[in-house]
């Protein structure tokens, strides 16, 4: 069975990528299971999606703990423990990072001996970088080595049908280009084993002790704890204020910010709290003077 995990941020197309790859496997005659996993739905937060593909009916369910292939759409997630990108990586697990940096840099940075590849992120970031789903699905299809380009093509068309010919065609180009680019690595990913009952390790079960209600209640005894949650990590695009253009209306951007992440200072200029700005870009849309622009996080 192939077990594949896609990591990215909400809105980067990881669910779509997993579905393109899932459909490509399915069109190739495999049994398939694919699913996204996220918490409270939110753009920019770390999410992952997974694909299982096998020749027999799939009975396994849930999160993939021992992946054959891990794909990362946004390289800023790699060092983030909450994103769990490196969870369960084995020596034979192939890691593919969508990044402007070289595989050597990543290998050194992560101290990983196993196979590590990169799919170069477009230098001119923007939308091309944000929606890397089709390209990464194309790369994955070649890395497993059992999916033809025509199956990939049909899968992209199937999954993106309804988005219009232009979008389908652009994504198809990206998917096929990535598929070609990975040609030297075709078949690099191998299928994982089914577990053997004889090799099963005994689970380390414990008796749950009874704690005092005061400690065992799911209560938070501190104020303003949301300040500690750095939701700025969810941002893929950063709103940047061009102060000479700001006409100091002193309220439009700050009023519209749904997270109260824009304050107006004593000089009546707005200031963005980047620790908590989620990058929704409502301020960019609302600013009457067009004084706020969106800059890709990687370039900010």
């Amino acid at each position: 069975m192939y077990r594949i995990r896609f990591h990215g941020r909400g809105g980067q197309g990881m669910k779509t990528a997993s579905r393109i790859l899932g459909s490509a496997f399915f069109l190739q005659g495999y049994e398939v299971q694919d699913a996204p996993r996220y918490g409270a739905e939110r753009r920019g937060a770390p999410i992952f999606a997974y694909v299982r593909a096998a020749r027999q009916a799939i009975q396994e369910r849930g999160i993939i703990l021992e992946p054959d292939l891990v794909i990362v759409a946004d390289d800023s997630l790699v060092p983030m423990p909450a994103a769990g990108v490196l969870q369960g990586i084995m020596p034979r697990t192939v890691l593919l990072i969508h990044s402007g940096e070289t595989p050597e840099t990543w290998r050194h940075r992560l101290n990983i001996a196993g196979p590590l590849l990169t799919l170069p992120a477009e230098a001119a970031a923007g939308d091309g970088q944000r929606f890397a789903g089709a390209a990464l699905a194309g790369a994955a299809a070649r890395l497993v080595g059992v999916i033809t380009s025509s199956a990939l093509e049909r899968a992209v068309q199937l999954e993106l049908a309804g988005l219009g010919r232009e979008i389908v065609s652009a994504n198809l180009d990206q998917a096929l280009a990535a598929y070609e680019r990975m040609a030297p690595e075709a078949g690099r990913v191998s299928e994982g084993e089914v577990f053997a009952a004889a090799a099963c390790r005994r689970p380390d079960w414990v008796e749950l002790p009874l704690d005092e209600a005061d400690a065992a209640a799911a209560a938070i005894h501190a104020g303003a704890t949301s300040v500690e949650v750095r939701t700025g990590l969810w941002r893929t695009l950063r709103p940047v204020i061009d102060y000479p253009r700001c006409n100091r209306c002193w309220w439009v951007c700050s009023e519209f910010c749904p997270d109260s992440a824009i304050r107006v200072n004593a000089g009546q200029y707005p200031e963005i709290d980047y620790d908590h700005c989620k990058g929704c870009l409502i301020c960019v849309a609302q600013c009457p003077a067009h004084a706020i622009s969106a800059v890709p996080e990687a370039q900010a």
């Binding site: 899932g22 049994e31 398939v32 699913a35 996204p36 996993r37 369910r61």
Partner: peptide, 10 residues
């Protein structure tokens, strides 16, 4: 939820 609701199968 999740294991069936959001999971695609044939």
């Amino acid at each position: 939820g999740f294991y069936l609701s959001f999971t695609r199968e044939p």
